[in-house]
């Protein structure tokens, strides 16, 4: 065990002990599992970010949807058509939207390099401002600030179906060669994806809305499912600190799997009468 791991574990343990010692005084009661969870998850992710920064090799499995981003923009460039990026219908208070904007900055960098038109219709004014900022930075990073103009990111409507109608209209009229749907989606997901499919665009979707994933899988060429969507920007940036957080996230997932198996085994043993410790009560689940 290395020193950094020891130090991080030590700090996490001290925080948890302080929490336990001042329970009800400094800290609200009833949130203990959540607090311990936050500390463990944060420490694990922090450790792997630090490890990646210090040069540790981290393997990320290839994600076909992310590899296809450049291919999609390239296709649009060859066809002389634009790229459409839809950042979902939620505001910036949703992590999905933030993740979508992160992916937008990578897409914008590629469109800047390839000198391809980018069209970003938004459903919220704050998202419009954030998306503009992300695109401006990307065009600057790509060395093509001259190609950037504010109106490539524009507002349509706050209403779900008015927005869907507006985006569908853009698709039908301009026939973009590549469509990206990255953000939080609801019922409009299939309206957008099917329209994109009907115009023959290459489509890459990603969302944290579990109920919309089947629709995207059906209608799009590539779909980033679940954590793939949130890992996308880290994966695309290739920055060690971001990739480290993905590794940390995977380790936490492994811990969750271990916890689920332990709870299952311990509860089964208890129900068989061989054991008198109720793990569900201990975790505050019953």
């Amino acid at each position: 065990m290395n020193n950094k791991l020891l130090a991080i574990s030590g700090i996490a343990s001290i925080i948890i002990l302080i929490y336990w010692g001042t329970f009800g005084l400094w800290f609200v009661t009833g949130n203990a599992p959540a607090f311990v969870g936050v500390i463990i998850v944060s420490s694990t992710i922090f450790y792997y970010i630090d490890a990646a920064k210090s040069g540790k090799e981290i393997y990320l499995r290839p994600i076909s949807g992310l590899k296809a981003i450049e291919e999609a923009v390239g296709r649009a460039t060859e066809m002389g058509k634009s790229v459409l990026f839809v950042p979902g219908i939620s505001d910036m208070d949703q992590v999905d939207t933030v993740a979508g904007i992160n992916i937008l900055s990578h897409v914008a960098e590629i469109t800047a390099k390839y000198e391809t038109d980018l069209n970003v219709p938004t459903c919220r004014a704050i998202v419009m401002e954030s998306a503009r900022e992300a695109c401006r930075e990307s065009y600057l990073r790509a060395g093509r600030p001259d190609l950037y103009y504010d109106d490539m990111v524009h507002y349509i409507s706050d209403d779900q179906f008015a927005y869907a109608a507006g985006v569908n209209g853009i698709m039908i009229r301009e026939k973009p060669a590549a469509c990206f749907y990255q953000g939080k989606f609801y019922a409009e997901s299939l309206l957008l994806a099917e329209t994109g499919n009907s115009i023959g665009a290459i489509q890459i979707a990603g969302t944290g809305s579990a109920s919309q994933i089947p629709f995207f899988v059906t209608a799009c060429d590539y779909t980033l499912i679940g954590e793939e969507f949130f890992a996308a920007s880290a994966y695309l940036s290739n920055k060690p600190e971001l990739i480290g957080s993905i590794k940390g996230q995977d380790i936490v997932k492994f811990m969750v799997m271990l916890l689920m198996t332990s709870v299952f085994v311990l509860d089964t043993v208890r129900q068989m009468g061989l054991f008198d410790f109720n793990i569900l009560t201990f975790l505050g689940l019953s």
């Binding site: 992590v95 933030v98 904007i101 679940g226 949130f230 971001l242 996230q249 997932k253």
Partner: peptide
Amino acid sequence: GSRAIMIGIALGIIATSFRIILGIERPF
């Protein structure tokens, strides 16, 4: 299947929030 996806999404949200809170990832 849907719970497996939900757990993945939840962990993804935590990791993304952590990156943003620590200023490692800046979409703004």
